[in-house]
Design a protein around this nucleic acid. Structure first.
Lengths: 195, 195
DNA sequence: CCGTCAAGACGAGACGTTGCGTCTCGCGAT
DNA sequence: ATCGCGAGACGCAACGTCTCGTCTTGACGG
């Protein structure tokens, strides 16, 4: 009944994941069907349904496997510079048509499938958010962040507006924007009376 | 070829909009089809296709017509209290299952249709964002907001994290959360050396 | 070791189902 | 007389399940 992972064909698995990403960037989400993925990968439909719950799960696996995933987060001691680096990278990711297409597809699937939403959050987003949170903690230890700042909310304060602007197409996603956002957030959590 | 709005049947129009909202809250987005809407509304499919481009356009019209739309924004002179009121209302909207279902559906359609995305932004979101921006300007005039604060970004700083948390299911959407968010943002834009 | 053999994953694609978007009817209202 | 209307038939596309025959793999016996 349930398939045995030991007997899984690695070649087919890879072909399916890359076919999904290729189709997504070439023809967009509207034309991304299971049958198209199977055709491009040279694979039977059943082979996809045997190992994945649907398009969304395939995309998620493809992303976690083929892409860097977490934007690397440096700790140079300069909190502002480090946050600018990560925000600039995030903004660039959303501005890039190819990456944006996969994000868009995954977001749609996520909105229609609660289980998938949990997996995307835990496997794709949480690591990134936690990394930033860790950097903020180190900044707090260095006295660059107010001691009582709610760091989880601060992380959302950094990324939330980027998602918001991307989702609503409410303005350009540029480095200038990213830098300004970091400045605003740092002002919110600066120690008393400092900038 | 193009239909004549003058001869449009108002009864059918209303039936379609309410049917769409009812189905959305009763059975969810996955089961929301044009045929289901037509059936529930007692209307031919062609009557829907004659006046709307698809599901998304119907939902948008239903929302702009049937719902309060813009959360009223008071100006009591107390900026913190006013922002808390509007953020609490927004958070409550996203936490409500029925309203959240329509927002989810519209977001999905929006991600797959650029024209619809522009309309949703301009007709549904912009008025709300502009209202908050206006309130911030009045607060700035009253000396409660730093003079050089980029108000458009500040508005996104308020709403972005709410969307982010809703989209990622990254935590509870409560009044406590809304209040904390307002405090953080106010700290970011407070005049020099004040809280 | 190595040959045999059953289990099961594989590519291919047929199948019934569903919803799509278009169309063609009379009907009725303007 | 025009044209939007309810109703629903139509062909199409993709769904998810299924059934083939083939190929791979791992276990067992000589």
């Amino acid at each position: 009944m349930t398939p045995q992972p030991a007997r899984r064909n690695e070649r087919s698995r890879r072909a399916i994941l890359t076919a999904a990403l290729e189709l997504l960037t070439e023809t967009g989400y509207a034309d991304l069907t299971i049958e198209a993925i199977a055709g491009r990968a040279g694979v039977g439909k059943q082979t996809i349904y045997r190992w994945w719950r649907g398009k969304g799960a395939v995309i998620l696996d493809a992303l976690t496997e083929d892409l860097p995933g977490v934007v690397a987060l440096p700790d140079t001691g300069d909190l502002r510079a480090d946050l600018r680096a990560v925000l600039r990278a995030t903004v660039a990711e959303f501005a890039d048509p190819a990456l944006s297409a996969t994000t868009r597809a995954l977001t749609i699937e996520t909105l229609a499938d609660d289980d998938l939403a949990d997996q995307v959050r835990d496997r794709l987003l949480r690591p990134q958010l936690d990394a930033v949170r860790t950097r903020l903690e180190s900044g707090r230890a260095a006295g660059q962040v107010r001691a009582d700042a709610p760091l989880d909310q601060v992380v959302e304060l950094l990324f939330g507006p980027v998602y918001h602007r991307w989702l609503l197409r409410n303005g350009p996603l540029t480095e200038v924007y990213a830098d300004g956002l970091v400045d605003l957030v740092l002002a919110a959590i600066a120690p008393r009376g400092r900038d």
